[in-house]
Write a protein that binds this DNA or RNA. Sequence first.
DNA 1: AGTACGCTGCACACTAGTGTGCAGTGGAGA
DNA 2: TCTCCACTGCACACTAGTGTGCAGCGTACT
Lengths: 189, 189
Amino acid sequence: MNETRDRILDVALDVLGENPDAGMGDIASAAGVVRRTVYGHFPSRLDLVRTLTERAVAEMTAVLTDINASGAAADAAWVEFIARVWPVTHRYRVLLALRRGEYGEAIHGLLGPVDELLADLVERGQDGDVFAQHLPAGTLSQVAYGVVFALADDDQQNGTLGARAATITTLLMLGVPETRAVTLVDDQP
Amino acid sequence: MNETRDRILDVALDVLGENPDAGMGDIASAAGVVRRTVYGHFPSRLDLVRTLTERAVAEMTAVLTDINASGAAADAAWVEFIARVWPVTHRYRVLLALRRGEYGEAIHGLLGPVDELLADLVERGQDGDVFAQHLPAGTLSQVAYGVVFALADDDQQNGTLGARAATITTLLMLGVPETRAVTLVDDQP
DNA sequence: AGTACGCTGCACACTAGTGTGCAGTGGAGA
DNA sequence: TCTCCACTGCACACTAGTGTGCAGCGTACT
């Protein structure tokens, strides 16, 4: 049930991914529905965007808490994190744009938990001398996963090639030596 | 002469840096001037944005061609590049936002020359085995200087601390080993 | 057959921005 | 002093989006 609502959400992710300033009308017609119908499911544009964000945040926090609980080394945990979120990263590339822009404030709040989990992971790596300390954990984690989104955005076919490159690039900037980075990535099941 | 025009441009850089969607009215009042006056100098919003971009591009291409002519090694050239553009990078952080958004097409075109020069520099480094090859030169250069802008945006006081951290972070992601990166940065006059 | 419900296709009011026209004002320079 | 010119302050027309109201329509379920 609610297939129209789901289709609107799916399509909105695409449309807003292409152009974060797209209007309700654009989303509606992309979903093969009339604008009025979208308002039937989401009272306001912000509601739609918030729902989208909550979806994304739920997925990412699930992965991150799972990984954090596994007690793996920070660098291995990072590799697993990228490997697991990569398939959906391109779909959620819109998050990058949403943090700035109209609803920045509201969205930023929702992303808070993800930010914290990532910062914790990076900090753990820095404390264990696995990651470099040229930047504070909060900043480094933000920039690193910003790079992941940027690369996912670039990698249109979203192949495994991109996943490997993204993982290596971020490991490098986290201060992991290239040889170790390659080993970690190739050990991935 | 034209001090009002210059003030508008300066202020616009700040205002649009804060909020890329700011209107002509916001820019005008921030410049202590009435909206109508802004239109006196710039026939349309796009004209203003284009002028701003041309300014930034001119500065960056000047630095890059200068460095490219010096014939330094790619990694040393990169360090010099960051050192020289860093002081103005925070001012031009708006460029990040402008590439997407309303005038993306137009702005992207203007940034072309900068993109090419950067890609050339990175490619030179890859050919000489100074930089890693996990990503094509075009992508790697884009992501790396995206990180520079992101860090400049984060580093509110825009101190030399940030410059050092930004340089090291980007060198790492370019595949330069940490020891070498630190040496390069500390050799900087 | 009847009903409930989700979608449609209009209508509307409202907001916020862009870009233009034009008369008026004040100060700097010939 | 007179003139030029930049800036002002208002008017306006236009666009593009948001969000709402309401009658109608078709389909699926009972």
